[in-house]
Simulated scan of single mutants.
Amino acid sequence: MTGRALVVVRAGALTTVQDRGRPGHAHLGVPRSGALDTPSAALVNRLVGNPVEAAVLETTLDGCALRPRCPVTVAVGGAPCRVRVDGRPAAWGAPVDVPAGSLVEVGTAERGVRAYVAVSGGVRVEPVLGSRSTDLLSGLGPPPLADGTVLPLGRPGVPFARVDVAPQPGPPAELVLRVVPGPRADWFTPGALRTFVTGAYRVSAASNRVGLRVEGPALGRSRPGELASEGMVLGAVQVPPDGLPVVFLADHPTTGGYPVIGVVRAADLPAAAQAVPGTPVRFVTVRRRPGTTRA
């Protein structure tokens, strides 16, 4: 076997290439995309000696299996899961040397939703608008991985981290989302605004990379009709006609016509990426910090 490449033996339910995304193109109608759990993606990159912006693999629930065509160092983080190399247990949350031709198996998430797999040199698929990320909404970037896909790898950079295991936050038992109110909070009744921050919500199984959907009490509006489409930002909490909030994640649309009751602080969104269906969700109102223009 020759060449710096990685063969996808088992793609799993949904495995995509992700990096830090393509922010700055919303005026062109292009979402930012990128890894949903950005701290986990950055950590596994550091563990194998990659820069934090290198492309990794993001798995969903049931992992994947990979076979490198060259010797590599691999690190798996994010959702805790079993890792095996040629059938033997390997470390999760730490760098692992993998010989050429060996089978790396990333198992089903034991907690959480998304695991991240970094390979020394990074995944080097062709970038689109400066990013290698798969965007499920717009279709930009490489398609979701399929069995047999061959991914090119870059050249390794600095030596990988010498650690036994890197501490990582666990998936949330309760998802607490801090929300800056508005810009369309005035479209909702006073009772709905109270319900939003006191209601018992849970993560819906209909959640995906576009948005975190919740189940719980519906929010009533104070005015009829719909808005003209307006710009949407990462973390916007849009309320469609069924009254159930949707928290926009990395692949969210850049415009929308449903009112936004608030915007979740960006620091809380990685935990949303790991919240399994049924996880309790609590929205907490906070004030916009001085000097900021967004959450």
Rank of each mutant, 00 (worst) to 15 (best):
V239D: 11
P241Q: 08
G182Q: 02
S229H: 08
P241K: 03
L129K: 10
L234C: 07
R202K: 07
S207W: 01
V237R: 04
T149N: 10
L137E: 10
S229N: 13
L103Y: 09
L136P: 05
S207M: 09
R213G: 00
R202H: 11
P181M: 13
V117Q: 10
E226W: 12
F188K: 08
A185V: 09
G231Q: 12
V117N: 05
A118V: 00
T189M: 09
G231P: 09
F196E: 11
D147P: 11
A161L: 14
Y201H: 07
A218M: 14
V123F: 06
S138E: 01
V233F: 02
G112Q: 03
A185L: 09
L129I: 12
V125H: 02
A206E: 15
P144K: 02
V125W: 01
S204N: 01
L136M: 13
G191R: 13
L175G: 06
F188Q: 10
P152V: 04
S204V: 03
A115I: 09
G154F: 09
V237C: 12
L140M: 07
Y201E: 00
M232D: 03
P224D: 14
R155Y: 04
R223N: 11
V165K: 05
P169V: 08
D147L: 07
V210M: 14
G130Q: 10
